[in-house]
Computed example of a mutant assay.
Amino acid sequence: MSLILEEPAPGTPNLSRARGVRLIRAAPALWRIVDGRGLVLGHLRAIGQGAQLRYSARRFHAPSRAFLELGEFWSADDAVECVTFSR
């Protein structure tokens, strides 16, 4: 068995508190939030730039087959935690 560690893409937010998840770039300012099993939990989107940078969190809602907007946050850690705890 081999373990492959992916190097984060340039510009990927550093997560200091979120454990057991990783971010995979899906678009220039959009990342998939993936758990340790490889399941996509939701999306993290960067909004704005510089001192005004915020992060939007959304989670897939299977019964409606749509994404639910969970809110906007000033840190990527807060947005990712919102997605992981909203299960």
Rank of each mutant, 00 (worst) to 15 (best):
M1I: 02
S2G: 03
I4D: 12
E6M: 08
E7G: 01
A9N: 10
P10H: 13
P10C: 00
G11R: 07
P13H: 05
N14R: 12
L15E: 07
L15C: 09
S16V: 08
R17M: 07
R17Q: 14
A18C: 15
A18E: 10
V21D: 10
V21E: 04
V21W: 09
R22D: 00
R22A: 07
I24C: 13
R25L: 03
A27F: 10
A27W: 10
P28G: 05
P28D: 14
P28Y: 08
L30N: 02
L30P: 02
R32H: 15
V34W: 03
D35H: 15
G36A: 13
G36P: 00
G36I: 00
R37Q: 08
R37E: 09
G38E: 12
L41Y: 01
L41W: 06
G42K: 01
G42V: 02
H43W: 06
L44F: 12
R45A: 14
R45Y: 04
R45K: 12
A46R: 13
A46T: 08
I47Q: 09
G48W: 15
Q49W: 14
Q49A: 15
Q49I: 09
G50V: 01
G50N: 06
Q52I: 01
Q52E: 13
L53F: 00
L53C: 05
L53D: 00
R54A: 13
S56V: 02
R58L: 14
R58S: 14
R59W: 10
F60E: 05
F60H: 15
F60A: 11
F60T: 05
H61D: 15
A62D: 07
A62C: 04
A62V: 07
P63D: 07
S64H: 07
S64T: 13
R65M: 12
F67Q: 03
F67C: 02
E69D: 13
E69C: 07
L70D: 15
G71V: 01
G71A: 07
E72D: 12
E72R: 08
E72F: 00
W74E: 09
S75V: 00
S75E: 11
A76F: 04
A76W: 04
D78Y: 02
D78W: 00
A79G: 03
A79P: 10
A79D: 05
V80A: 07
C82W: 04
T84E: 09
S86Q: 06
S86E: 08
R87E: 15
